[in-house]
Design a protein around this nucleic acid. Structure first.
Lengths: 178, 178
DNA sequence: CCTGAAACTTGTCATTGACAAGATGCCAGC
DNA sequence: GCTGGCATCTTGTCAATGACAAGTTTCAGG
């Protein structure tokens, strides 16, 4: 059912999502989704939680694979591109209550994965560095999903375009020319 | 009426927006909004267009005031914080059709204002520099509006926090320590 | 065989977006 | 002064939706 929700959101966005349509696709009655999630908010909360878990998985995997900060950043972008529906719901906090414990735990896990990887540059407040890293990958991902970048750049692969962008912030100077 | 829409979105988010509620607040009948905007999509299109105009104004003003790139970036963040409803609608493209001519013109104007300001760093593709600049300010603004940053940082003023973040990307090395 | 819980279904209600068909007011041109 | 036309709304209606209440099926454990 969450999978069906992801599909619908991918087609019509978060506003076009209807519990009854989900039920129709799943071949059940119109009240079945309400039983499982209680509420439309409940469904979106579950979807956001799942999204944070997937994101944490992706970030931890990139970190485990010997990845430096660049790789973790690219994993963030790749997550957004591969799971656009999850990403959109996760960062639209007026769709769900933010006091759900499951969601808070998943979010905490993802935040930790992101936080651990940013090694501070010399002379820079590590908190600022973390914020900058998060901002640039999140901004890039959001703009890409919004379609704002596809026309500006000839690129059709998000990560190819994201790589030099992230390098500009954290890359060694020798990388800047590439 | 657009002002009322802004107010409602500020309270309940884009999904809680109802044409009938708008009509109630404006003291008119439930079909009056439909006459002016034709459609819910129409209303959101108008709101997005207005948002892009306001953004272009803000960016051009920052640029005109002798602002370097840092000031323009801060103006972007300030716009998002001051006009959260507009900002949210603008960058949620599944809420409105993207082929509206008025909207396209306004968007073009804002894009131009942003594009013109980014002076390339030596040895860096200017397109990449623009993308990085846009990404970092957009990401910061989005995360701030989503409430993701307010807890992490003790700051309660967005621009104070955004300043060192933007400096990290574009500032001179002498600024980094501050 | 009985019980009770999980996973639904059916039925209903207020609200919403969209549309059609009038009202009402105002102003230009004759 | 009258008429036609236009912009701005109102009333009425419809299908779709989210939420909820109450019943139904299924099935494991005792």
């Amino acid at each position: 059912m969450l999978a069906a929700a992801v599909e619908v959101i991918g087609e019509s966005g978060t506003s076009g999502l209807s519990l009854r349509d989900l039920a129709r696709r799943a071949g059940v009655s119109h009240a079945a989704p309400a039983y499982h999630f209680g509420d439309k908010e409940g469904l979106l909360t579950a979807l956001a939680s799942q999204g944070y878990e997937l994101l944490a998985d992706a970030l931890e995997a990139a970190r485990g694979a010997g990845g430096e900060i660049l790789e973790v950043g690219l994993a963030y972008v790749r997550f957004a591109v591969d799971h656009p529906a999850h990403f959109k719901v996760m960062f639209q906090p007026d769709l769900y209550p933010d006091d759900d414990p499951t969601l808070a735990a998943a979010r905490q896990r993802a935040a930790e994965a992101l936080r651990a990887e940013v090694t501070a540059l010399p002379g820079v407040d590590p908190q600022i560095a973390r914020l900058a890293a998060w901002s640039i990958v999140h901004g890039f991902a959001t703009l890409w999903l919004g379609g704002a970048l596809r026309q500006a750049a000839g690129q059709d692969d998000a990560t190819d375009l994201a790589r030099p962008v992230i390098r500009l912030l954290f890359g060694h100077d020798s990388d800047r020319a590439t």
